[in-house]
Design a protein around this nucleic acid. Structure first.
Lengths: 181, 181
DNA sequence: GTCTGCATGTAACTGGTTACATGATTAT
DNA sequence: ATAATCATGTAACCAGTTACATGCAGAC
């Protein structure tokens, strides 16, 4: 049930509409927990039913009205409770691994091209994260509190993407030199 | 729909019952794509309905009968088709990241302890993978074909777990020295 | 007599994806 | 004209989890 808590964290930092939350999930938080607007709307309603958030209708000029959500007392309590509770360490779930494992049962050069494609994609994400890191956290050892935590989460993204890129690189090298031998 | 294809890969290597598949998923393949027996049984039935696999009832002494599944022609075709098709590069989905991001809204020393716990867990997994690597692939540059692919998938696991451990380490260091300052 | 392993399953539920729908405003 | 952005939603579906259920064999 991490999406609820991701939303609670985001809304605690700043109140916002479902649409705005979806935008935020496209950036920062969503790099580590993706969510579509449909899911966010549904979860927001459930959270309101549970009394974790409340909304106020806000009229706008030239734009549709929006519902601005903010965290209620029960939501703050729930977040604190959840923060003290253990969560499962993540487990790999990589389709590319299955493809690689089955490569000899099909067109293995197609699998190689697929690994190259993944390397390129992970490289792009890595560059995005590194750009954010340089721009928003140029002096990391000066950070504390919320900013430090945000920086460290971003570091997790950098490390993960870097390690995917490195793995793809190792696979590409190994498959190519196998082809040559 | 990667579970179907993971099962196809596994059954191509060797025919087996749902129970045996569940055991295999607890080891090798399951390190990269976890599945419970319930899910495997359900998917096997669906796969049989699609004509991808067939089963033969096998009577055993001292043990319950079992249904041994093997890949049918349509299954082989499906696997080849899927292998040539692109899949999504994986995206991080780490609850620990959300906890860290919200750490300042709750008991941040509890979050630190949680990161330490995750580090320990990822270290255990890393050791398991490294043990398999040393035992089953002592001479990696001599590998080719299916064995090479298996080795490379394992390398993905090693790299991923190592990078989680390193990240946890970075987080622990940063949170501790923040506490001291 | 209790626990572990082998072997298969049903049922309810939760979380997430995909497709579809509406409707105004602003920029090209 | 047309596409993009803002804003919210319904409905159907798929994948995965959790709980429960059965029953035999062999080990301790």
């Amino acid at each position: 049930m991490a999406l609820e808590h991701a939303i609670l964290v985001s809304l605690t930092e700043r109140a916002g509409s479902g649409y705005e939350l979806a935008r935020r999930f496209d950036r920062s938080i969503g790099f580590f927990w993706a969510a579509t607007h449909q899911q966010i709307y549904r979860v927001l309603r459930r959270m309101e039913d549970s009394g974790w958030v409340t909304h106020t209708e806000v009229a706008q000029e030239g734009r549709p009205d929006k519902k601005v959500y903010r965290v209620a007392e029960a939501g703050r309590a729930e977040l604190t409770r959840w923060l003290a509770e253990p969560v499962e360490p993540i487990t790999l779930r990589d389709e590319l691994g299955i493809k690689l494992r089955g490569a000899s049962l099909g067109d293995s050069s197609a699998v190689l091209r697929e690994v190259e494609r993944h390397r390129a994609e992970h490289n792009i994400r890595l560059e995005v994260y590194l750009t954010i890191q340089r721009r928003d956290f140029p002096k990391p050892d000066k950070l504390s509190g919320r900013e430090l935590h945000q920086y460290l989460v971003l570091r997790g993204g950098v490390r993960a993407e870097q390690s995917f890129v490195d793995w793809c690189e190792e696979v590409i090298q190994a498959l190519r030199s196998e082809g040559i031998r």
